[in-house]
């Protein structure tokens, strides 16, 4: 439970690739989310002017997230909202997947660093797109002698972002693994529900929010010099 198990080892053009539990669980979560999206898309054709039931739920989710993302990142960068919607859904459902006995993909550093790397890539890209030279100048600000420190500071952002989420999710996994391993059977009924609710649902939602809002702020900070 604590280790990230390898399910398959695939050789692609001579390169060894480990298909881990994390990757498999990510695919399961992706299938679930894409399945939901397909259902929503099918029902979308019969969407009414006044929303009800399933349509209402879909609209609430999209609207709340869009308002949150746009208010944080600003209207200019609002086209990035779908990416962060997917990131939000992936991290949240990764945490929730623990309830169903799956090892959370976000309890693997490869997942969290991949997402943090995307944030870093977007941060640099948006900085260069909207501020060009002014963004590059931040690396030698206030003097070129500070370049190494500024560079380390920038590179530390995705590392810190990924380890924050990874550490929090792994800690929940460790605690629950220890609980299941060290407690007698009779206390493994009922009580774990509260632990899962706390570590998976509450911590999961909180860490999802923190990861996404910090990512949005990093990108906004890079792209908007008035912010």
């Amino acid at each position: 439970m604590l280790n990230v198990d390898n399910i398959w080892v695939v050789y692609v053009a001579g390169v060894e690739i480990w298909i881990t539990e994390t990757i498999l669980n990510t695919w399961i979560i992706m299938l679930f989310l894409i399945g939901l999206a397909v259902i929503a898309r099918i029902k979308f054709k019969s969407f009414q002017e006044i929303p009800r039931g399933f349509q209402n739920a879909i609209e609430v989710v999209v609207e709340i997230f869009d308002n949150f993302a746009v208010s944080t990142i600003g209207p200019t960068l609002s086209y990035l909202a779908p990416w962060f919607f997917a990131v939000f859904a992936l991290i949240l459902f990764s945490a929730l997947s623990s309830i169903f006995g799956l090892r959370a993909p976000t309890a693997d550093w490869a997942t969290t660093f991949a997402l943090a790397l995307a944030t870093f890539g977007l941060m640099v890209a948006m900085g260069l797109k909207y501020r060009r030279g002014a963004y590059l100048k931040t690396y030698i600000d206030p003097h070129w002698i500070f370049f190494p420190m500024n560079l380390i500071g920038e590179l530390a952002k995705p590392v810190a972002l990924s380890f924050r989420l990874y550490g929090n999710m792994l800690s929940g996994t460790i605690i629950l693994t220890l609980y299941y391993a060290l407690t007698p059977r009779f206390v493994q009924i009922g009580i774990p529900a509260f632990l899962h609710a706390f570590f998976d649902v509450l911590f999961g939602a909180l860490q999802t929010y923190i990861f996404v809002i910090i990512s949005l702020m990093f990108i906004r900070l890079a792209a908007d010099d008035n912010w």
Binding site: T22, I23, M30, L33, I34, I58, A86, V87, A110
Partner: peptide, 24 residues
Amino acid sequence: QIGIQLLNAILLAAALGYLLYNPV
């Protein structure tokens, strides 16, 4: 694995964006 997870995230974002987020 970082590369695979990044690709997974991009695929998920493309699918959710195309199927759900943008149309809604």
